[in-house]
Design a protein around this nucleic acid. Structure first.
Lengths: 210, 210
DNA sequence: ACCTTTTTTAGGCAAATCCCGTATTGTTCT
DNA sequence: AGAACAATACGGGATTTGCCTAAAAAAGGT
């Protein structure tokens, strides 16, 4: 029987050791490499083409999202299974929408991780742990799935709002009139369902749009 | 020779396994218990009185800071060694100022962790990894150590600002006049060296004061 | 008991914000 | 081609903010 060739990417030595310990118990899985930062992860994944890349998204160097995008862009057959500390929607959405085959959080028990590895190795798409699935279904209930994406221009304006600039200053910065800035902001408020620049700025920071 | 009795508290099973693996290699250390959430950690630490509590600060239930405070309050002899993902100043400062004997980040190699365990078990105070030490020294250079703390009332006002309330609404909420709210905000701006409520709110969110 | 800080209130004023219109140009999808 | 949307711009008006000065009561520390 062919073993599943898997590669670990995590900047925490302790975490790598823990994962390895459990994966080693599974006789159908073989850990062929480890990476401690983003650049190394991308490099090794390209060279070795493992069946599964178990990827932590918070690492020094290239971030998980970029790695997923890059591997997808070059048509790599590597299946990416994200193992993250975070269950924020921008991460789950971002990764699953950019080439990741699965998403788990680190609270999962080891058995779930092994199960997920087998799942994505078989070719399953969108493998998520029960915990992540619960979070995702909660979004659909509140109807805030894709949160009506802002236009590039609106995002420009919002960025400057977060920096504490006034509408006039933002107008200068972007080479448009103050009135136009206000107009963009009105749209932003409507889309984000907020009523003030402060709320919009706080949301932007919390959701890491900046 | 007496072995160092150590207890692990981390909500990630994988992380616990990794740490355990390395601590087991050290013959002078014995892992006597594990906790997966804050309440369990506090409970077990009280009952077992381990020599060292290796504590992750991000856990469900009671947070690391509360655990440290509580153990210090009841005069527990347990030495707390924080093992965190985060190297933000509010965490490092908060924990070391509230009973923690040491602070490491998870990027550290296992050898450093073992070394730190032995250090705090010997009774060393303020054991920090080289990485954390570097971060701390960077603060003192930029002179932004204690960042002129806000008064309780100013913090109250700031909280409501973050929620997007107007000064009038905040006044209602706190049972004071709008003018008073404005005055508090002026002080907040001065202390934080910002010039608008948006900047203050963003800062409050980023620094996790809310 | 004295001094400092904190918390509170107030009036005034220029600037900024937010909400309501309308309108032109260009792109994109059907 | 027509519909829908994005981006631009302008005006009016009610409200809010940020900054100034001034002052007084309450709390806390030496």
């Amino acid at each position: 029987m062919e073993k599943i060739r898997i590669m670990l990417a995590d900047d925490h030595p302790v975490a790598r050791a823990g994962i390895r310990k459990f994966l080693n118990k599974a006789t159908d899985i073989e850990v062929i490499a480890e990476a401690a930062d983003g650049n190394q992860a991308l490099e090794l994944a390209r060279q070795l083409s493992p069946d599964v890349l178990l990827l932590d998204i918070e690492m020094p160097g290239i971030k998980g999202l970029e790695i997923a995008r890059e591997l997808q862009a070059i048509g790599s057959p590597v299946k990416i299974l994200v193992l993250s500390t975070y269950d924020d929607k921008q991460f789950i959405f971002g990764l699953l929408g950019n080439g990741a085959a699965g998403y788990l959080t680190k609270e999962e028990v080891p058995e779930t991780i092994v199960e997920a590895v087998r799942g994505v190795a078989r070719g399953e798409k969108g493998w998520v742990s029960r915990r992540v699935a619960a979070i995702m279904s909660a979004w659909t209930q509140t109807g805030e799935v894709s949160s009506k994406s802002l236009t590039p221009r609106e995002l420009d304006v919002l960025k400057w709002v977060v920096k504490g600039k006034t509408n006039q200053e933002i107008g200068m910065e972007l080479g448009i009139s103050q009135k136009t800035v206000e107009k963009h902001l009105e749209s932003v408020f409507a889309k984000l369902k907020v009523t003030s620049r402060v709320e919009a700025a706080v949301l932007a920071v919390q959701e890491k749009w900046v």
